[in-house]
Design a protein around this nucleic acid. Structure first.
Lengths: 223, 223
DNA sequence: CCGCCCGTGGTACCCGGGTACTACCCGCCC
DNA sequence: GGGCGGGTAGTACCCGGGTACCACGGGCGG
């Protein structure tokens, strides 16, 4: 029997998790917490096998709560759940000592098998996150933590920024863009900089790749 | 439809994989290889979406084969499968550029969902391995929080130059290319310079566009 | 044997790109 | 009115990228 502590600031969310877990013969919800501080206290008190931890919460967030629970030495494993698969969330959580990182859009069975894996001492990470984790791992490089990488939605780009990105993806230099769009080069730089930050690209080369991946630019095969 | 290349030195093992994959409506086995060299050749030839790669094989092993397939720039994703969950294997495989690492004792459904994840650009790692991977990650990887072509014939590029171009088109910096291909950065610069001259590109951005136009790189649409 | 190509490596230099600020104007909305 | 987001523009600084040039070893063909 695996005991679970649910930590989430949204009651409805907690209810959903509770219903799911109680439908299983081998899991038992032993408590609920609405914010980090309460989570730390209850974890020490109830000593659950697994803590289902949300990140975004008022007051102490899930990362800090994870760190405290892990460092206070209990044997509870932390499985972090979040709506957004931001790299910085994943990295922060895992470095804080979490045993897993899943997205809330996961299927119920995935969540359950994740809980069982974590309870058994294994670790689970959402496939999409694993991808980037491995990239960072393979590079030997510190992970990119773009300031506003969350907004990878195209809608996050303003019309002008979108226009600039397309120009970049055509291979135009900043001065060429300035000339064709009738702007100062410094303005172009400002726009390009914001675009890079928003889409999480390190330089314009990665921005070009981003543009191709999203279909903002299409290959023009010769003949 | 996901196309798969099966690489394993044991015919019986290959047969098992083939039967499993052929029982699925969305996967298709396009080839089989019994050792690394054949895997590299077939991967280049068949351009499968996913390569199911065994590690222990006579002659060229799966790690080296993975490295070659990845660096030669095809869009094939490598899913490494092995009987033993040695850390050594996992690390080598992932560093070589594999998108996944699963154990052969995995359930069939796990393997299938792993193949689908990898084909979709995500990554999968066996839970038991993930555990140790994260440990290594947490300990050894300090995360800083700084927060038109004249000669358009591809044949004009030597094999090495072709490889460099593909690397550039993946958004890698010169230093990253140097690291991954085990070269000095100055050597990378030399190669990049020659590539630019040969394909008539002004800078690496235009080289990336060239690569997309010629199909040396393909867009990876998200989800 | 001698060239020649290819891959590798190095030095030195310049410039475009990217970042970090600050600033002003405009339109919109509370 | 005051705040805010978007677009514009500037300065200053640093660094990666690109170029020019040279050098050496190995393989291969004349």
């Amino acid at each position: 029997m695996t005991t679970v502590l649910i930590v989430d600031d949204q009651p409805l969310q907690r209810y959903g998790f509770r219903m799911l877990l109680e439908s299983q013969p081998d899991t038992e919800v032993v408590g609920e917490a609405a914010h980090g501080a309460e989570a730390v206290r209850l974890a020490a008190d109830l000593r659950p096998d697994v803590v289902l931890m949300d990140i975004r919460m008022p007051g102490m967030d899930g990362i800090e709560a994870t760190r405290r629970i892990v460092t206070t030495g209990g044997r509870s494993r932390i499985l972090v759940l979040t709506t957004f698969d931001l790299d910085e969330y994943a990295h922060s959580a895992l470095r804080a000592g979490a045993s897993g990182f899943l997205l809330k859009d996961a299927h119920p069975e995935e969540l359950l098998s994740g809980i069982r894996a974590v309870a058994g001492g294994d670790a689970v990470v959402a496939p999409a996150v694993t991808r980037r984790l491995l990239d960072a791992y393979a590079h030997h490089l510190p992970v990119r933590t773009p300031v506003a990488a969350q907004d990878s939605r195209l809608g996050a780009l303003t019309e002008r920024e979108h226009e600039i990105l397309v120009a970049v993806a055509r291979g135009w230099s900043n001065s060429e863009i300035a000339e064709r769009l009738v702007l100062a080069e410094s303005t172009v730089k400002t726009h390009v900089g914001r675009v890079l930050a928003k889409i999480g690209a390190r330089d314009r080369v990665q921005a070009v790749i981003f543009a191709y991946d999203r279909g903002l630019a299409r290959p023009n095969p010769p003949a």
